[in-house]
Amino acid sequence: MAREQGQKMVAQNKKARHDFHIEDTFEAGLVLVGTEVKSLRAGRASLVDGFADIEGHEVWLHGVHIPEYTQGTWTNHSARRKRKLLLNRAEIDKIERRVNEKGLTIVPLALYFKDGRAKVEIALARGKKSFDKRHAIAERQAKRETEQAVGRRLKGHQD
């Protein structure tokens, strides 16, 4: 059987980009059991309530929902168990140092397969305040309106 090539997206956490200022991102491997991999290959997962934590110089992913595999038997996994992330020691030390000193949190942004291996993109993030969210929405709306005005101008329409 040929080895998988490329990247296959399983799940994204769009809410994280809305609720947090993303400061730095890392790609980490995941320690999974067989039925979790089969469930992910079926394209089923949710990162919405997920976060990562450092316990004893290891990074653990909490709250990520990977549903039970439908054809699984008694060997099936629990849907919201904590999963170990695979990172280099230097990356773990860097993340731990920044989380402790600056008050950042670790949130998962995406879950995908890269060359046949399950990966998760995690980010060091700082929570946004509600006025920051409103400001970001207003900026996005203003940018959209200017692009529409430029497009109308190029087509020859007068406003």
Rank of each mutant, 00 (worst) to 15 (best):
A2S: 10
Q5R: 12
Q5I: 14
G6K: 11
G6M: 08
Q7N: 12
M9Y: 14
M9D: 09
A11L: 09
Q12C: 08
K14H: 09
K14S: 07
R17W: 10
R17T: 03
H18W: 05
D19N: 11
D19Y: 00
F20E: 06
H21T: 14
I22H: 07
E23A: 01
D24M: 07
D24L: 04
F26I: 09
A28W: 05
V31P: 01
L32Q: 09
V33N: 12
V33R: 14
V33W: 11
G34D: 12
E36F: 07
K38L: 15
L40V: 02
A42C: 02
R44E: 12
R44P: 02
S46T: 12
S46N: 14
L47W: 05
D53P: 00
D53W: 01
D53T: 10
I54S: 03
E58M: 12
E58F: 09
V59M: 10
W60C: 01
H62S: 01
V64E: 04
H65K: 11
Y69G: 02
Q71K: 11
T75R: 07
T75A: 00
H77L: 06
H77P: 05
S78D: 08
R81N: 01
R81C: 04
R81T: 01
L85R: 00
L85S: 03
L87K: 05
N88D: 14
I92P: 07
I92D: 06
I95R: 01
E96D: 15
R97V: 07
R98V: 00
R98Q: 12
K102T: 08
K102C: 10
T105Q: 11
I106T: 11
P108I: 02
L109I: 09
A110L: 04
L111Y: 03
Y112G: 04
Y112H: 13
F113W: 10
F113D: 04
K114T: 00
D115N: 15
D115T: 05
R117N: 07
K119P: 04
K119N: 05
K119A: 01
V120E: 01
E121V: 10
A123Y: 06
A123P: 09
A123K: 02
L124R: 03
L124M: 14
K128A: 09
K129D: 08
D132G: 01
D132F: 03
H135W: 10
I137W: 11
A138Q: 14
A138H: 13
E139L: 11
R140L: 07
K143D: 09
K143N: 15
R144N: 04
R144K: 13
E147C: 07
Q148K: 15
Q148V: 13
V150I: 14
G151E: 14
R152H: 14
R153E: 12
R153S: 06
K155V: 00
H157K: 11
Q158M: 12
